[in-house]
Design a binder for these strands. Sequence first.
DNA 1: GGCGCGTACTTTACCGGTAAAGCCGAAAGG
DNA 2: CCTTTCGGCTTTACCGGTAAAGTACGCGCC
Lengths: 346, 346
Amino acid sequence: MREVLLGKVTLQSIADRVGVSRMTVSNAFSRPDQLSAQLRERILAAADELGYVGPDPAARALARGRVGSVGMLLNGALSEAFEDQVSAEFVASVADELARRGLALTVLTPPKDEAFVPARDVAIDGALVYTCEPRSAGVEWLSRRGLPVVAVDQDLGDSVPGVRVDDRGGARLAAQHLLELGHRDIGILGLGLRGEDGTLHHSDSFPSRQRMAGWSETLADAGVEPVVALAPYEPRGVAQGVARTLLETSDVTAVLCFSDVFAHGVVLAAEELGRTVPGDLSVVGYDDSPLAAANRPPLTTVRQDITAKGHLAAGMLADLLVGGAAESQLLPATLVVRDSTAAPRA
Amino acid sequence: MREVLLGKVTLQSIADRVGVSRMTVSNAFSRPDQLSAQLRERILAAADELGYVGPDPAARALARGRVGSVGMLLNGALSEAFEDQVSAEFVASVADELARRGLALTVLTPPKDEAFVPARDVAIDGALVYTCEPRSAGVEWLSRRGLPVVAVDQDLGDSVPGVRVDDRGGARLAAQHLLELGHRDIGILGLGLRGEDGTLHHSDSFPSRQRMAGWSETLADAGVEPVVALAPYEPRGVAQGVARTLLETSDVTAVLCFSDVFAHGVVLAAEELGRTVPGDLSVVGYDDSPLAAANRPPLTTVRQDITAKGHLAAGMLADLLVGGAAESQLLPATLVVRDSTAAPRA
DNA sequence: GGCGCGTACTTTACCGGTAAAGCCGAAAGG
DNA sequence: CCTTTCGGCTTTACCGGTAAAGTACGCGCC
């Protein structure tokens, strides 16, 4: 690597230098078995001398028809997605598995303007769809492009394979747990979405619907009518405020939460009001994020194996890319009983 | 969009359909001002009819010489990077700012094998280098490719612009704070890196070196010799174990920590040993992650504006890509005093 | 000694776009 | 009225690779 180049170093320039065809140089880099080791050495040496780094990824992508990178479609600003360590961990496990399969991960955020729409304009071989409300323009673009897609925590129809967690079953376990402890006045802190007018309504996302369904039906079967409150994902501390209002305006003895972050907010709100957990109030979280175990008191929660979910989703997509078929998977959710739940005071 | 296509829909097929040149169709999508609105309408309509989604990103990348996506080079497994919410938030803020600039973010993890080396083989226009120990093969590849690079929290030489935080100054503030409270027996819980033989040694990363320097020099100036312990990033709970040993084998009255996560571990270890914070032990964190404020007691910590750092770094790289010049920036670090520090018991 | 065959390269034919210069007719200016 | 200018479309010339088919030659084999 000692020459200063005027033009860009291409396969052709190396080929000229060595006196072979461009294709042979290409093979030296991409299919070593197609030429003699000796010639390959010479080519690699010449390439190094010229300061050649390797085949241009963009050109290779066009020629091969594969980019070597898959997208992950997120809806809100990415910062929201990472509000919760659970999402971050999911992304991490996806990236790790993809790396193992020789794929990079590209983050597709919602478009800021019409000019650049990630889901439409970024070169990818396929995509994972995560944390999107069902009707997302991004999903629409991906499908128009005909890209292989794997849905995560949502139902995009039977034609799109997906990885989902048995959130409904998990929520049932949580509700059942409270009922068994003897609670009859139960609150639910669900996921709210801020509408255009600023008011909150139930999120349409798969986990939100499923968890809500699981809680409701279990409580209904026992003749319990829950008090429902909603908190949005975004602003920190908001969940705590919502929780406080819930506790002040009702006499629930236990609260089922959409996430551990929410549950943490409930615990804080309870303490603000001078109520102890689990003495005065039982709280159940969801996800079993690191926060759950670290919380004081450690949270009873519904556990899902987020890392397994990430590995599985990434693997499914990688398989699809090489022509395999992928079958939707439903992962189990289990109840982890810790110290934030107890029988209600007599 | 009503025809079933045999061949792929390309600009050419639309051009043929409408009876114009391929270039005009290209312009209809990419440079609307180059043709009459009327013709553009016809072209767009024909494109829609044929089920054309838009110019192929890979082809466009090759022709334009720009990909529309930048990389973020990480060293450890990504999961480690996201262990700490601070890293996750940084990534999120980078992605947000990039999106605003019309760029996507691609995650570059360390190669699993020689065949696929992200830093070498992924199509990107530039890269941010984050959480990398100084001598990283990835950085080497990026520079060989001649890609614009922005360093984050590290020093890649004067030729590479970077965003750094005044970690040394921040650490000084933290140490000074403890000295002013009257502490003389001070422990340091620094960042350790697990070597090949499994033993821990000081991390060479910029933040690690700078913080260590800031603590050491401030304490040294006051004639205090700290007790130093190291904890690795990865396995959860390990920091707590290291902290416990530190507390058991020394009689420090305060501990300076590399991160809030570590500080949290120290608090837990102290409680295990029946010692209260800040009564029996003062603890200072670093970063002011969400964890710091949520911790019981809320942690005294050194705050850095992680979101600003992300926006700035992304902005710098985006500017570099459009030919601008970027100047290295040093962000301030400030001390946030909360309830985890107090004067030592008499 | 002709035949089949594998090895080691080369040839041909794209991949799907974009930049920049070129061409042409109509409106604007002297 | 002839020349500029300019909008609007076309032409030319790549961008930097790869797949697949083709060629040439040495070699073992019956």
